[in-house]
């Protein structure tokens, strides 16, 4: 497949269905079985996808559910890869607050009561984003398009966009699950280092998360531009 056939652009309305799936599939990764956006809320994958799709037109900024923060790689007129990026707390509102507000309005009734019963697990899993750092989320490449460096290209395009717009940002952060060894290794090669790690020993954790712990990784964005261009 010719690499020149890929176009990198901002997400648009016709991508929403792709983005909703990508958010869930990126969370599941290569090792999990269900997304925490579904299982942790006691809802099915399809219910979570439909809720994400319904909230997209709101274009709430500052969290992983905003289509405004996505860049996509298009091939043959179709989106085939995406990465989301925003600056944490840029408008004074944390991403988890924006995400919670969207879930409160769009998740099925009972889902938010369900997640409250799993607080003993979420408390052990969560890592915290750093205010002012660029957040990289929902890194997803469709299976048929892997191996072309699309994720790296999309991350670089995000950084270039932030730098061009002169956002006051020097560090990038991302989160993944401890079991995603291949992804962690790839990110380390690109210049990321692990800055925080959690582990949950609750026997039920894998019913609700695609991993038993989370890893927060950080990189200087200037180093990242060099690292992923190699």
């Amino acid at each position: 497949m010719n690499e020149n056939n890929y176009i990198i652009r901002r997400a648009k309305e016709s991508d929403y269905a792709f983005l909703a799936e990508a958010i869930l599939k990126a969370d599941i990764g290569t090792t999990g079985t269900n997304s925490s956006y579904a299982a942790l809320f006691g809802i099915s994958y399809d219910e979570a996808r439909d809720a994400l799709l319904a909230m997209m037109p709101e274009e709430v900024e500052g969290c992983e559910f905003s289509p405004f923060h996505f860049l996509v790689a298009e091939h043959g007129g179709e989106p085939v890869a995406c990465v989301s990026a925003w600056i944490e707390g840029l408008d004074g509102v944390s991403s988890w607050m924006a995400r919670s507000a969207l879930m409160q309005h769009y998740y099925p009734k009972g889902a938010l009561d369900f997640v409250q019963t799993k607080k003993h697990i979420t408390d052990k899993m969560m890592v915290h984003r750093t205010e002012g750092a660029m957040q990289i989320e929902s890194v997803f490449v469709s299976p048929g398009h892997r191996g072309h460096g699309l994720a790296a290209k999309l991350i670089k395009a995000h950084i270039a966009k932030f730098l061009m717009q002169q956002y006051p940002v020097s560090k990038a952060e991302l989160m993944t699950y401890t079991e995603n060894k291949t992804a962690i290794h790839t990110y380390e090669k690109a210049g990321f280092t692990v800055t925080a790690q959690t582990h949950c020993d609750d026997p039920d954790v894998l019913q609700y998360f695609p991993g038993t712990g989370m890893v927060l990784m950080e990189a200087e964005i200037m180093n990242l531009m060099k690292g992923i261009s190699q």
Partner: peptide, 30 residues
Amino acid sequence: DSLTHLTMIAKVEEVFGFRFKLKEMVKMKN
């Protein structure tokens, strides 16, 4: 945190008898 935040918002809505609009919730900085 994200979970107690949801409980707090629900409780405020219950006590004061209204629902926050989405746009209001995502603009509350403090």
